[in-house]
């Protein structure tokens, strides 16, 4: 839940005209303002907000809200399990 709301906030800062519902359906194909500049800004906002560094090879796949959410869930879970290792 927390991940969802933080990610929605990131999207809202880059796409201020979208509603929360529209954000959750958003992708590069459905949002006209999702151009290369918006994509770079979105990745930078997400990296800073979640304290992660997105691998350049993953950038091409992060082209929708749901893809971004899945990616973050995977990365953040991974980090937690790494931390729990002694």
């Amino acid at each position: 839940m927390e991940l969802d709301s933080r990610l929605v906030r990131c999207f809202a800062s880059v796409f201020p005209d979208l509603t929360t519902e529209q954000i959750k359906q958003a992708s590069g194909k459905t949002v006209p303002t999702w151009d290369s500049l918006a994509a770079v800004t979105l990745i930078a906002v997400v990296e800073q907000e979640f304290g992660i560094d997105v691998n350049p090879l993953d950038l091409g796949d992060l082209n929708s809200y749901s893809a971004m959410k899945d990616y973050l869930r995977h990365r953040l879970n991974g980090r937690m399990s790494e931390r729990s290792n002694p």
Binding site: S13, P16, T41, Q48, E49
Partner: peptide, 12 residues
């Protein structure tokens, strides 16, 4: 200032 904050400032 975080980028998110900067974008929020400019949204207004």
């Amino acid at each position: 200032m975080k980028l998110l904050t900067a974008l929020d400032v400019l949204k207004q």
